[in-house]
Amino acid sequence: MAVRPDNRLADGAMQPVACDACGACVLVRKSSWEQTSLQWSAEAAEACVERRAASPRPGPNGTAFSGCGSLRDSVRAAVHRGEVKVQIEDDLKTNPEAQEHEHA
């Protein structure tokens, strides 16, 4: 019962980006300016310097590595250079019913 591919990938595939700090290569997709998806491989996770240096955050869910700042900057730079496509450039919407709710 294999899980099917994400239908959105047919409209725009993930694109490789290498981290400027450690060279770890991940796949990136941006559905909007606000949204970023990253697919790591085991090799990339091993190569990531920030990940190795990270200490757990407090709390019961603190062991999950929250993310690499260098990689985030590298992805941002790749988008900046036009190397990673932003699928939909419009602003995120807000719910029109929100105003009614506020007045109620």
Partner: peptide, 21 residues
Amino acid sequence: TDRFEFEIDTDRPNEAWKREV
């Protein structure tokens, strides 16, 4: 089991960023 991240961050000044790109 490989790591996957999905992030939405609305705190960035996207208008200026969009223009620069």
